[in-house]
């Protein structure tokens, strides 16, 4: 899952990026509105964490611009402004959630998962296609034949991307952008390695491959999983 973090404070930006990457998020961090707009023009994001007080303007202008273009990307405002009027205004402008600094990172990530889940139309917090199930909160995966097991960060990230849109074929590049943030070194054949590791743990038919096109998981099967 790829996140755009818009945060002007260097220390918070660095620490938040670190924490999110530890939890298998691909994070791109920008410090102002101009670079946020550039980033949004260049790649697809699953959610935006938006600070309001930025050096070249207020984060809410970006929010307004995106919603005016009918962009439905989940946006969480993360700010030190704690007045009720600020929160109301932020939510009314189209933010999906509003988190006040200082915040708890676990809570922020839970809120992130919630807004992304809602955007995809899933009510259940567990991602599943009926064959394999994944709990984004604990990074645990299981099938009908295996116990719950904890997946390492990158394996979790890959399976999460696939399970969010079962049946959709994801190219190598698409998977890499979903797993790696800016500045993270992409190891060659990493995707092949991760797919192999997941298949070994959960069963070889879990992830399917279309040669030259990419990888996918099967569309949901009712009464299973």
């Amino acid at each position: 899952m790829r996140l755009l973090l818009v945060e002007d404070d260097v220390m918070i930006g660095e620490a938040a990026t670190q924490a999110l990457r530890d939890a298998a998020w691909a994070v791109d961090w920008v410090r102002d509105l101009r670079n946020a707009t550039l980033a949004l023009g260049g790649s697809e994001y699953d959610a935006i964490l938006l600070d309001l007080g930025l050096t070249d303007g207020d984060g809410s202008t970006l929010l307004q611009q995106l919603r005016a273009k009918n962009n439905r990307i989940p946006i969480i405002i993360v700010t030190a402004r704690d007045l009720a009027s600020d929160r109301i205004r932020g939510l009314d402008l189209g933010a999906d959630d509003y988190v006040i600094k200082p915040f708890d990172m676990d809570e922020l990530m839970a809120r992130l998962r919630a807004v992304i889940r809602r955007k995809d139309g899933n009510a259940s917090p567990i991602l599943s296609n009926g064959i394999v199930s994944l709990d984004p909160a604990t990074h645990e995966a299981w099938t009908a034949n295996t116990e719950r097991m904890l997946l390492p960060a990158r394996e979790f990230a890959l399976l999460e991307i696939l399970l969010l849109k079962p049946g959709k074929i994801h190219s190598r590049e698409a998977l890499e952008t979903g797993i790696y943030g800016w500045g993270e070194e992409i190891e060659s054949n990493m995707i092949d390695y991760l797919v192999h590791a997941i298949r070994k743990k959960l069963g070889s038919s879990i992830i399917r491959n279309v040669r030259g096109a990419g990888w996918y998981v099967n569309v949901s099967v009712p009464n299973a999983g």
Partner: peptide, 29 residues
């Protein structure tokens, strides 16, 4: 408002130490 910024950074930095996998990573954090 301004006091929240360093506090936020501190709480994130402390949490990152908890999550470090190796002693070296922990030292860096």
């Amino acid at each position: 408002h301004e006091l929240r910024t360093p506090l936020t950074a501190l709480s994130l930095q402390a949490q990152n130490i908890e999550r470090a996998d190796t002693i070296d990573a922990m030292r860096q954090r």
